[in-house]
Simulated scan of single mutants.
Amino acid sequence: MNYEWVDGYLLSKPEVTKEFKEEWEWDRYLLKGKMISALCTDKNGKEILTLKCEPVFAKKLRSQYKDIIPGYYMNKVHWNSVYLEGEVSDEVIKNMIDHSYELVINKLSKKMQNAIKNGDKND
Rank of each mutant, 00 (worst) to 15 (best):
R28I: 13
L31Q: 08
T50W: 03
D27G: 01
W26L: 02
R62H: 00
K46S: 06
Y65M: 03
I48E: 02
K66V: 11
K43E: 15
E25Q: 15
I36L: 13
T41H: 13
A58F: 02
K59H: 02
A38C: 05
V82T: 13
W26N: 08
E47P: 07
N44E: 15
L31D: 07
K43W: 09
K43M: 12
S37G: 15
T50E: 05
I48R: 11
N44Q: 15
E47R: 10
H78Y: 15
S81T: 04
D67F: 14
S63T: 11
D27N: 14
E22F: 08
K76M: 08
Y65G: 01
I48W: 03
K59L: 03
Q64K: 14
W26G: 00
W79M: 01
R28N: 02
Q64M: 12
G33A: 14
Y72Q: 10
L49M: 09
K52H: 09
W79A: 01
N80V: 04
D67T: 02
K43C: 11
L61G: 05
I69C: 00
K52W: 08
G33D: 11
L51F: 06
T41V: 15
Y73F: 07
E23R: 13
M35K: 02
S63M: 08
K32S: 08
V77H: 13
A58M: 06
K59C: 00
K21W: 13
V82W: 05
L30Y: 06
E23Y: 14
